[in-house]
Design a binder for these strands. Structure first.
Lengths: 138, 138
DNA sequence: CTCCTTATTGATAATGATTATCATTATAAT
DNA sequence: ATTATAATGATAATCATTATCAATAAGGAG
């Protein structure tokens, strides 16, 4: 039977309230301030469980450690090629439905049945776009 | 200055002709038959380079080692939740253009500039769908 | 409240995947 | 041929994550 734990609540709560997408280690270091006895294994363990249970989302990146996202509302991600930051992109319900429908049809094309999807757009974020412009001027 | 190497050619060639999406180790083991002196570090090294140069694609999976895809034609991936197999889904030019356009617009929504994307649909592949049906009958 | 079962923890060892190091070898220009 | 250096292969090192396990904490039952 599942038991309550302060650690798990802290981890989930923290992920639900912060809007960045921290790695397990970043989250561990941050939470260690609030709960110094916290162990890093506990963080990894709970993050994996919370993913399995669908309370949070694991984001694989092409380099480095996995990131975690407490926001389970359907959304897609944008990763900046320059600064590496990952941002959320929320779609309007209509857009999301259309996209969902498209993906389901693509899967049908190979006789498969879609149940989920993972979309990451890459490119330049707003900040890095501005930086690039600055470079050209000088 | 870039120099030719038999190993790199073998690796790239192999990936271009096979349609599965092998891990670095799988590829290494297969190629070791053709070239017994091949080292696994060489495989990892060349795979990373070939990715950087855009000749192949790295596929991150939610569990286990990265997979590599010699097919750089625009396409998306389908990963079966049951058997873990990764298949290619090719879109018609029209579909692809529409999808591309949609993604570019989503990025614009956060003032970002899209230059690429990574789409993986998850669900049940054809084979595993049939297996599931078989289970229910018995 | 106290006892008891067992889920969960934290420390750390182990693992898996990948990258770094470095002496040796292969490539290509002179 | 000679030479400069890119690339290799063996292996050590690193990084991220999971497994192990004794100690602790949660939450019934009596």
């Amino acid at each position: 039977m599942k038991k309550y734990s302060r650690q798990r609540e802290l981890i989930l709560n923290s992920l639900k309230t912060r809007t960045d997408h921290p790695t397990a280690e970043k989250l561990y270091l941050d939470l260690k301030n609030e709960m110094p006895e916290l162990g890093i294994a506990t963080v990894y363990r709970n993050l994996s469980e919370l993913c399995d249970e669908g309370h949070i989302i694991r984001i694989k990146t092409s380099i480095g450690a996995d990131r975690f996202d407490g926001n389970t509302m359907p959304h897609i991600h944008f990763k900046c090629k320059d600064c590496g930051e990952i941002s959320d992109i929320y779609l309007f319900e209509m857009q999301m439905k259309k996209l969902d429908n498209d993906l389901k049809n693509f899967a049908k094309g190979i006789d498969a049945e879609a149940s989920g999807s993972n979309i990451t757009i890459t490119g330049l974020c707003r900040k890095c776009k501005l930086n690039k412009k600055g470079e050209k001027i000088v």
